[in-house]
């Protein structure tokens, strides 16, 4: 609903995608944090508590507490190997496909434990869609790429499918570029177009949440900007969680940022990932509480 848009932070500083907070906005951000009162009725989509993900005996990442709010963009940032992608993939149970992966602790989605034995992982993924690092369209036509999800969900009428395909492609800002060649292969598109096709495919099943795993890392700056613009429009409808290597991107697009880093695993030799700090993006980028966050933000490591 509109509770996000009317929050004090938004009322005072109309943040647009291209002019997000940066390190030079320190004064503005300071004012922001002082008036940053959380509206109490904000809907929490994911609530993560005391979570650890293991690969066999190896603990890959630990999160003490993290909550993702509705119609916000939450960014996971941090150096390589800090477990942000592992964390993201636990949110829609994509880690189930790794035989040795195991989750301890609790992730609730709208109050329901995602790892409850009664929960059907396929239904989870139908509601929590995913966009991957490398664009991965199906080797099918553009139309069939988008129509695949709705068809699985039982939409059979041609007119209905046509409608979903057009709506999804418009939603992914791709319609005008491909409307005359819907029958052509999705693999014939450029990298940026392919990624938007993947977004359209994710949107077509009308999910509640869209997880994005470094969606722009294989794209050029122009394609990246388009996807970032798109994310701003999408968050009106969806809740977005994005993993990014690119701090500037997190600063530009996200409402909240979670900073992960690696630390020496007390029960082993290998380094393990940990959530260090989670807050409003303006705060993380201007007055981080943890020294490691500050070092990473200012480019001193990572």
């Amino acid at each position: 609903m509109s509770n996000v848009d009317t929050s004090p932070a938004r009322a005072h500083v109309p943040i647009t995608h291209s002019h997000g907070p940066s390190m030079t906005d320190a004064t503005t951000a300071q004012t922001l944090t002082m008036i940053d009162d959380e509206p109490a009725d904000e809907t929490i989509v994911f609530d993560i508590e005391d979570l650890s993900v293991y690969y066999g005996d190896f603990r890959a990442v630990t999160v003490d507490e993290l909550s993702v709010r509705e119609h916000e963009i939450t960014a996971f940032i941090g150096p390589s190997g800090c477990g942000k992608t592992t964390m993201l993939r636990s949110l829609n149970r994509m880690n189930d496909f790794i035989d040795i992966a195991r989750v301890e602790g609790s992730i609730t989605y709208h109050g329901v434990d995602l790892y409850d034995p009664e929960v059907n992982a396929t239904e989870v993924r139908r509601r929590i869609g995913m966009v991957f690092q490398k664009p991965n369209p199906f080797p099918k036509s553009i139309y069939d790429n988008v129509a695949y999800g709705p068809r699985l969900a039982g939409v059979k009428k041609r007119a209905e499918l046509d409608d979903v395909v057009e709506r999804s492609l418009r939603g992914a800002a791709l319609w005008d570029e491909v409307k005359d060649r819907l029958k052509e292969s999705g693999l014939g598109l450029s990298g940026g177009q392919q990624q938007r096709l993947c977004i359209a495919r994710a949107v077509a099943v009308e999910p509640d949440v869209i997880l994005m795993d470094e969606p722009c890392s294989a794209l050029d700056p122009i394609a990246t900007a388009r996807i970032e613009d798109l994310m701003q429009e999408m968050k009106e409808t969806y809740t977005i969680v994005i993993v990014t290597h690119n701090m500037q991107q997190a600063g530009r697009v996200s409402d909240r940022t979670a900073f992960f880093t690696t630390e020496v695993n007390p029960d082993g030799e290998r380094r393990t990932g940990r959530l260090i700090e989670f807050d409003r993006t303006e705060k993380i980028f201007s007055m981080p509480e943890d020294e490691r966050t500050e070092q990473y933000i200012t480019g001193r490591f990572g």
Partner: peptide, 20 residues
């Protein structure tokens, strides 16, 4: 990545196997 794509839109194991 092809399997991921299928699972990502909520296809079941069998649907991913059959369709992709």
């Amino acid at each position: 990545s092809l399997r991921d794509a299928g699972f990502g839109v909520g296809a079941s194991r069998w649907e991913v196997t059959r369709d992709h």
